[in-house]
Design a protein around this nucleic acid. Sequence first.
DNA 1: TTGTATGCGTTATCAA
DNA 2: TTGATAACGCATACAA
Lengths: 339, 339
Amino acid sequence: MAKPTINDIAHLAGVSKKTVSRVINRSPLLNEETRERVEKVIRDTGYVPNPQARALALRRNFLVGLVHDNPSAQTVLNVQQGILGALRDTEFEMVVRPVDRGSSTMLTDIRDFISRQRPFGVILLPPISENDQLAELCQELGCRYVRMGSAQIDTPDHMVASNDRQAVMEATRYLIAQGHRRIGLISGPHGFRSARERRQGFEEALSEAGIKLPRSLIADGNYTFESGIAATQSLLDVSPRPTAIFASNDDMAAGVLLAARQRGLSVPEQLSIVGFDDQPLAARLWPPLTTVHWPMKAMGRSAALKLIGDMIDENEDIEEPSMFVSTLVKRGSVAPPEA
Amino acid sequence: MAKPTINDIAHLAGVSKKTVSRVINRSPLLNEETRERVEKVIRDTGYVPNPQARALALRRNFLVGLVHDNPSAQTVLNVQQGILGALRDTEFEMVVRPVDRGSSTMLTDIRDFISRQRPFGVILLPPISENDQLAELCQELGCRYVRMGSAQIDTPDHMVASNDRQAVMEATRYLIAQGHRRIGLISGPHGFRSARERRQGFEEALSEAGIKLPRSLIADGNYTFESGIAATQSLLDVSPRPTAIFASNDDMAAGVLLAARQRGLSVPEQLSIVGFDDQPLAARLWPPLTTVHWPMKAMGRSAALKLIGDMIDENEDIEEPSMFVSTLVKRGSVAPPEA
DNA sequence: TTGTATGCGTTATCAA
DNA sequence: TTGATAACGCATACAA
């Protein structure tokens, strides 16, 4: 049989379409036996409402857009899992929209996407989430949005943030507590808010301990494995060389590990390493990487709930948190410096 | 201004809706100046057709479903990139649908998804793509589908496969050519077609070289890092111990590396390792992992094009390949065995 | 080459 | 508590 429509159900149940519609939408003003009769027909026929038709009539659809520019594979996936967990058992679907932040047409591309699909809302991943023009664009187009990122750069209803600065401060304090004084930093790319926050957390922890950080112990990275290798090479050329390195993400930390090995330095005995992200990779390296856990899955879930919360919450008073704390995961890549 | 509709455009251009519709759908029978006049209005107003309305009228929508059960983060992401590349500049969007293959309701869940959303088509990832009941379900529901996997288990129009067996044969031949005779295998989970194909490729290469494989050199894994460690421990207990190990995926190969290190074995001098997948992880390990490149991105692209090809091809004669070859990537984890 | 009438499956309005 | 009728925005059949 062809797919039944609301008309078929109405006919079979001997009621009007509107009544069927009321049953579907759990309208309170409905005779109980009418409801049961209609529900039986729905069950028997396996009828499901057509989302496209609903979208047209309601003038809103059930798509949540995930707009991103490949922060890192694992990050994207964690966020997706979080979002999909929140969307589970709702009528919402997640559509993924990758963009190219290097392209001059990025804003136009996103504008086209939003004005074409008119998604119920969009979730913006870092680093493009840091782009204020993008947020303004969403406002202008009347599209709900939630930004994810490493600092509170929007109002709580539009933002799910991690406190990267605080987390890196704690990680750095841990290195200091282990006895390290010469600690190198590999920063993230210029212009990334996450890079700035992590760097500031690092610097604050040092200054709080009264440690002066020579400029030579700060190396530029761009979040790639290769940049981690290159940055480490320059850091290890400094004399006296650092006894520990904080890399602003795990991929770069993996590069540190490789570069250290190439120099014949043993980790953690001769060089301690701390990363950021807590990707699966971190636990697979040797020694396993001490790193900051970035709760992107939980944040993705929260972002999605912020977006659709109003539509599904029976009890609307559940307020999604807009700030998440990252925690240090201690594994094997940190030890006290050699005498 | 509210979003303009086809009616507004028709009105502004002084034509009927149908004419506007013809312009949108590039109907050939249209007066050139009429077309230009309408197109100008469309440009000026920034009009874009409503996909939901189109979907309703056309009785088909523009959603491509990606149904999977988390093979591995990187695999999912590679496939997504491939699909999204193919969908780029089309009116199609990708919706992601994770399911739980362990759950008894998996088929029901997917049935609900398909009959509710009525996606234009679905792409099924391994391992659930190997489930024939799932393919039958798609047929029954009249939903286009393409299965991805490690062997040709459906007709070419429904299948994008990699030739895992062939690829593993070549990888194993490479180990043999290096002089290895005692080679251990860590298999994938029972019931996975990819596991079977890879194992068979391994066994065929050995038998072709006249090498008899003792049962003790085959260890069961389940594609996780941890299972790679456990399997390696049992393999290295065999006496004489193997000089090389083929792990059926990279995560397990990373486990081999770790377990070897725990035993104090140097890689590749005392133990050679070959993996499968060519995840980014493979290049970040030390030594970098020799592994089989699994072209999931290209396969995802091909799967998407197979699905929507008819709708977008100007020249319909481009036949998407249904078989992809995986190639061996030689890095540092293989060397001749010690004397 | 263009327009009219009608349908797609749902919800909203307003009256019964 | 229910139903008739009109949207929603677009496409198709059939005329003109």
